[in-house]
């Protein structure tokens, strides 16, 4: 089966069962060349398994995986990992403890120009001069960068990263993320990383795929995914959201907040999704809402607002002093996303 494609990686109808449990269920997933993709989902959703199938550590039961034009896995074929030209950065880095930093990076390289390439990569990840160190003599962040350099060394067609930042402490994490993104951009690699952290996925990736319960729920740009989730489950998992019932007719919907504009025409009973920051609050003694609680974060604040029988979460800038019991006027900015209400 040949499927001409411009994708770096292309999964069609991929299924995988472990011990009678369907871990992956007819996955369809593509990643354009040169982009940075994220597989986002809670633990146990199958995202790591998908990564391991792409890497070739596991065999697939059904479906096809292409790397560029090359079919690397199906029920009948299985290109061994070492022939796939796929680099991998492991969650625990998996640095070879008996080899120096330089030897770790050079492991996947041929003898020719190996030293030059090692120096180049050490320079790239900002570890020049540490080639002779042993892995256990490095800090966590440095180890992560060695792992990245090692995976990049053989110029893989695709780089896979399994929860690459989860073992770093919070202060370091942001810095390493940014650095990693810069490095990947610099070498123009196509990379796919797995994370359960939606903020990480949204801030790093060009292309985010949300997986829940072994299925792909949505693949889109971070922007699209956040603003126009295609299902309530995705909306719930990616970012915070208020859900309320309404009746749609064409481009508008009638709900507890009055009549709102829809992103696309719909009919009948629907569930509306409103992001907290889409709710605009204005202090107003005659307003339709009342502040019940406040959590102040500095760069913004999260407010618990009651409007009639509805409890909504709203997010706004730090300037307004919205103490509990204060009455506010609540407005919804922009059109809202609606999902067909479940028939039950």
């Amino acid at each position: 089966m040949h499927e001409p494609t411009t994708f770096a990686i292309n999964c069609r109808d991929v299924s995988k069962t472990f011990n009678a449990t369907k871990v992956l269920d007819q996955i369809d997933f593509q990643l354009p060349s040169g982009s940075l993709g994220a597989l986002l989902g809670p633990s146990g959703c199958g995202k790591t398994t998908l990564l391991r199938l792409i890497a070739g550590f596991e065999t697939i039961d059904q479906g096809h995986i292409w790397l560029g034009d090359r079919e690397i896995a199906s029920a009948k074929t299985h290109v061994p990992t070492e022939q796939r030209q796929i680099g991998m950065v492991f969650q625990e880095y998996a640095l070879f403890p008996h080899l120096t930093v330089g030897q770790n990076i050079g492991y996947g390289l041929g003898r020719q120009a190996r030293q030059q390439r090692i120096d180049e990569l050490l320079e790239l990840v900002g570890l020049a001069g540490l080639a002779k160190r042993m892995p256990h003599e490095l800090s966590g962040g440095q180890q992560q960068r060695v792992a990245l350099a090692r995976a990049l060394a053989p110029n893989p067609q695709l780089l896979l990263l399994d929860e690459p930042f989860s073992n770093l402490d919070a202060g370091l994490r942001d810095q390493v993320r940014t650095a990693t993104k810069q490095i990947l951009r610099h070498v123009g690699a196509t990379a796919l990383f797995v994370t359960h952290d939606q903020e990480e996925a949204l801030s790093l990736a060009d292309h985010v795929t949300v997986m829940l319960g072994g299925k792909v729920m949505q693949s889109a740009s971070p922007h699209e995914l956040y603003l126009r989730p295609t299902s309530q489950a995705v909306a719930q998992f990616v970012g915070e959201a208020n859900f309320l019932a309404g009746i749609a007719r064409d481009n508008s919907v009638e709900c507890g907040l009055g009549q709102l504009l829809l992103t696309k025409p719909m009919h009948g009973p629907v569930t509306l999704m409103i992001r907290p920051e889409a709710l605009q609050l204005v202090p107003d003694p005659t307003g339709n809402g009342q502040i019940l609680g406040q959590r102040f974060y500095g760069h913004d604040q999260l407010l618990d607002v009651q409007i009639g029988a509805l409890h909504l979460a709203a997010r706004t800038g730090p300037r307004l002093d919205l103490a509990p019991n204060l009455r506010v006027a609540v407005n919804v900015q922009g059109p809202v996303v609606a999902f067909q209400a479940e028939s039950s």
Partner: peptide, 21 residues
């Protein structure tokens, strides 16, 4: 950790070379 062996293979080394090295 079996990840070490997987890392070796993902770097393009066949299983026997990974076992040896």
């Amino acid at each position: 950790n079996p990840r070490l062996e997987e890392a070796g293979r993902s770097l393009g080394q066949p299983p026997w070379r990974v076992v040896l090295s």
